[in-house]
Amino acid sequence: MKILVCITHVPDTTSRIAFTDGDTKFDTNGVQFIIGPYDDYALARAVELKEQLGGSITVLNVGGAETEPTIRKALAIGADDAIRVNAEPKDSFFVAEQIANAAKDGGYDLILMGRESIDFNGGMVHGMVGELLGLPSISPVMTLDIEGDTAKMAREIEGGKEYLEVKLPFVAGCQEPIAEWKIPNMRGIMSARTKPLNVVEPSGNGENTKLEKYELPPAKGDVKMIDAENVGELVSLLKNEAKVI
């Protein structure tokens, strides 16, 4: 089983979001970067599948040199080698094209990634990679098992689940509870230092969208507290002030 896991390098979920350079750049000051939580689920499941079936795991990230500590963490969790496409991820299509180009001659049985990145939340890259490579793409995948040349999975839909089967190879966008996040152990961290991390230059036609400007939502007003003995007041506020019931 040859597995490619695509990861994003994103701000920790507790980060304060701010922008600089006339609201055109994310302010990385004091921000800790992590493997995208959904990508981390994909990686964890890949490690389990490798334990079960043998094979290898390659991680791929599209990003500058500053993303290498995040890539090393994925190697410490259990990937065997890594590819970094040396480019700023401009938009979903740009990233998808880099992944497709890197994957097309790799002979991967499975291409896994998170259902979406937690910075841009696009949720589009897996579908685009599938289309570019002419492979089925399924997302968001909640469970994934491999039996011979067939993948069996559950996909989350509004109000429930859908169960699917597809022949390998295919592309999956993953989410919980596909596997438990894995914490790298000391041996993993030590061995990650010497695992191969290949840097390749970007290729392709570039982006389909252009960022103009970021903005923050307007500040929230103060909370109005209501006495626990007087829930009727809440009902009348919802009715007459908020007008939502």
């Binding site: 922008f19 969208t209 400007k213 939502p217």
Partner: peptide, 9 residues
Amino acid sequence: KAFANVELT
């Protein structure tokens, strides 16, 4: 937590 204004080219 934020918004982006983007152009579709």
